[in-house]
Design a protein around this nucleic acid. Structure first.
Lengths: 285, 285
DNA sequence: CTGAAAGCGCTTACAG
DNA sequence: CTGAAAGCGCTTACAG
C-alpha cells in the first residue's frame, strides 16, 4: 500500500486537510510596506521562527489601506489563517479587536487588549533625548510618521517631558510629520533651509530619512555634525555606511518573539530593549 | 434570508471554498532573503499587482535551503498555491520543472523551459564594462554571489568577452565570489588591501556590497574614486546617499510583469531593460 | 426559479 | 487492527 502511494507520488490535497483540521499552518503578517528596513527585520524574524515550526507566512503590505487590512482580518475569520501578527495597523483597534474571536492576534506595538511585543518608544526616545541634551543640545527637532500613530504619540510625550526638564518648550516648527523615505528627509532639510531656522540636532525616525537629510545638507554645504547633528533609527546597513549615530530596536527579535506568542498561545506583553549606536553624526556643543 | 446572513455576520469557510473550487487565490513567491533590496523590489511589484487582482502572496524566504524550497513546490502540487514565482532558486531546474504539471511557475531569471521575466545580466554587465573601459579602466574587478548561479555565469561571460576586446586577460584574483552583504564588501576590500594588488575599478553586485567596500576603503584612507572606482547595483536609497554610480534593473517592474504572466497564463519571455545611473564613484583614467 | 442532493478530498470516530 | 461511514463546509448540477 505504502509502495503504491509512493509510486503514484501521491500528496494530500491541502485545502481538504485544512477544512477537516480547521487549521492551515499559515500565519498572516500585516505590514504597511515591504521596502522599509523596520518591517523587513520584523518579518525576517517572524519568517525564521515560522520556518522552524512548519508555518508559512502570508505577507500583506497594506500601504495603510483599511480595506486591504480588513481583507486579512477576514481571512482569519474565514479560517484561511491560523493567526495574525500586526506590525502596524490602518484600522482602529476597536475594529480590529473583535477578530480575536477567530484566532490569536499579536501586535508589534503596545496595546492593552492584545498580546504584544514592542519596543518602548517612550523610553527609547527619552534616552536619546537625554543623550543629546547631555551633549549640550537644546534646540532639538524630530521626525515622525503618521501623526496619530502610537509611536508618534510616544515621541511627542517623551519630547515634551524631556524639554520640560531643561526648561525648553516644544517648537512645533521642529517636529516633522509624515516622514518615511529618503525623499521625505530631503524635504525636511530643504524646508528648514528655506526658512533658515535650524535646530542643532534632528532625531530622524529611520535611517533613510536621516540619510535624506544628510544628502540635502551636503547640497547646501551644511556640515554634519558641526552645524547640524543627526540621529537615525533602525541601525540598518545604510547607517553604518554613513557613519550615522542611530538606535537599534532589535527588530528581528521583535518578530521572533511575536511568533513565539502566537505559536504558544501566550497572552503576554514583551518589551524589547533598545540600544543607542554612537557613531559620528552628533557633535558636542 | 440575506438579512439573516448579514445579522449573523456569516462568512464562508475559505478552505471549503478552496477545496471545492480547486483554487486558493494565493500565489507563492520564492526568494532567498527578505532583507535584500533586489528581492524587496521584486516582491513589492508582485504584491502590488496581486492586490489589484485579489490575490494573496505567500512569501517564502528559503535562505537557499533546498528542502524549504521544495516545501513550496509541494504546496503548489497540493493545491494550496495557484502558482509560483521563483525569484531565485536553490534546487536545480530539473527538480523544479516537473512541478509545472500542478500550476504555472514563473521564473525571474531566464530559463528556456519556463515563462520568465528577467534582466539581461549579460547585456547589462557588458554595457557597464564598456562604460568603465571607455573611461580608461583596464584592471577591472567584480563581485558576484553564488559561484554557480545564472547571474554569476552571465557576469563571467560578459567579463571575458569584454576584456578580450581590449586584449586584457581575466584576473581570477579580481573576481570576488559569495558577496551578499555590506560585510562581504568590507572583506573584499580588506583582502585586497592586505595583498596590495588593487584593480582600478570594482563592479559590485549590489549597493550594499559596494557600500561595504567604500566604508572599508575609508578605513584605510583609500580615496574613492581617484584611487579606486566602484559601481553598485540596484539603485537603492543607499546608492543615492553615497552618491554611488549604480545600475537600475527596474526590479519592481520585473515583479509586476511576473505577476502578469502568472495571472494571464502567459508563456512568454520578457526582458526588462536596465539603466546605468551615473553618479560620482567612477573616475576617468 | 427553488431546494435537495451529490461531490470536492480529506480525517476521525466507530463498528466489526 | 481494519475498513466503511460520517462529517468538515462549501459549490454546482440537477430534479421538481
Amino acid at each position: 500500500m505504502k509502495k503504491i502511494i509512493k509510486d503514484l507520488d501521491y500528496q494530500q490535497n491541502l485545502p481538504a486537510v485544512h477544512l477537516v483540521k480547521g487549521e492551515t499552518l499559515t500565519l498572516g503578517v500585516i505590514i504597511p510596506y515591504i521596502d522599509h528596513p523596520y518591517f523587513q527585520s520584523v518579518v525576517g524574524g517572524i519568517m525564521e521562527k515560522a520556518f522552524e515550526n512548519k508555518y508559512s507566512v502570508l505577507c500583506c503590505a497594506t500601504n495603510y489601506n483599511k480595506e486591504e487590512e480588513l481583507k486579512y482580518l477576514l481571512m482569519l475569520k474565514r479560517k484561511q489563517l491560523d493567526g495574525l501578527i500586526i506590525c502596524s495597523h490602518a484600522n482602529d483597534w476597536e475594529t480590529i479587536l473583535p477578530y480575536t474571536d477567530y484566532g490569536p492576534i499579536i501586535s508589534c506595538e503596545y496595546v492593552e487588549e492584545l498580546p504584544c511585543v514592542y519596543p518602548d518608544y517612550y523610553e527609547t526616545f527619552m534616552s536619546v533625548l537625554d543623550y543629546v541634551i547631555a551633549k549640550g543640545h537644546r534646540n532639538i527637532g524630530y521626525c515622525t510618521g503618521r501623526s496619530g500613530s502610537f509611536s508618534s504619540k510616544m515621541r511627542l510625550s517623551a519630547f515634551e517631558a524631556s524639554l520640560k526638564k531643561v526648561n525648553q518648550g516644544v517648537s512645533k516648527s521642529w517636529v516633522f510629520e509624515d516622514c518615511f523615505t529618503m525623499d521625505d528627509g530631503k524635504q525636511v532639510l530643504e524646508n528648514l533651509y528655506r526658512e533658515g531656522n535650524f535646530p542643532t540636532v534632528i532625531l530622524a525616525n529611520g535611517d533613510e530619512v536621516a540619510a535624506g537629510m544628510i544628502v540635502q545638507a551636503k547640497v547646501h554645504g551644511i556640515a554634519i555634525p558641526s552645524e547640524l547633528s543627526i540621529i537615525g533609527f533602525d541601525n540598518s546597513p545604510l547607517s553604518e555606511a554613513l557613519d550615522l549615530t542611530t538606535v537599534d530596536l532589535h527588530n528581528k527579535k521583535t518578530g521572533e518573539q511575536a511568533f513565539h506568542l502566537f505559536y504558544n498561545h501566550l497572552d503576554e506583553k514583551i518589551k524589547i530593549p533598545f540600544q543607542l549606536i554612537k557613531r559620528n553624526t552628533v557633535t558636542t556643543l
